[in-house]
């Protein structure tokens, strides 16, 4: 009888350890959020969004940083470098050239963006990482329209 109890307790303990290891493994390796499939937390217009950051950076950062933003505006230009493709909503001129919203596209959507002529009204969805005193940055962006 005593032996049977030992086996049950031992079995439970082993199962517990395996479960703990599995949870640890999946939490440790949990995937990055797929922003192209995420529902936007905010839907904004490019100029108003940028002005919000410029006039009150702290409050806007608290509100938008880390959130999924769907931004609509007139595409000013597309910046292509070796490493990334960026959609630009250029809104003003500052000390360091144009200022506005920079949307870094996910590689799968880069070609689509390049085919859109500047001046077109587009909606881009991405993860807002903040305002660096010249631009507001959105990353992991996809094109909604």
């Amino acid at each position: 009888m005593k032996k049977k109890w030992l086996i049950i307790i031992g079995g439970l303990a082993a199962a517990g350890i395996v479960l703990a290891l599995l949870v640890y493994f999946f939490v440790y390796n949990k995937p990055h959020k797929d922003y192209s499939k995420a529902k936007p937390d905010f839907e904004v217009e490019a100029i108003a969004f940028f002005e919000e950051f410029r006039t009150n950076a702290a409050a806007s950062s608290a509100r938008y940083n880390g959130k999924v933003i769907a931004i609509t505006g007139q595409l000013s230009s597309v910046e292509v470098t070796d490493e990334q493709v960026v959609a630009l909503f250029e809104i003003d001129e500052g000390m360091f050239g144009s200022e506005g919203v920079r949307c870094v596209l996910i590689p799968e959507k880069a070609e689509t963006l390049i085919s859109i002529p500047p001046g077109s009204t587009i909606t881009i969805k991405g993860h807002c990482t903040g305002y660096n005193e010249t631009d507001v940055i959105l990353e992991h962006c996809s094109i909604a329209i």
Partner: peptide, 29 residues
Amino acid sequence: RQVNSALDQQTGDFVFRVLMKSFQFEKAL
């Protein structure tokens, strides 16, 4: 990859602005 930087060739002034949330790690955790 989204770092702002400016260098003034005359005065040598050199500035950086780095958004912390723009750092990408291999693991989400």
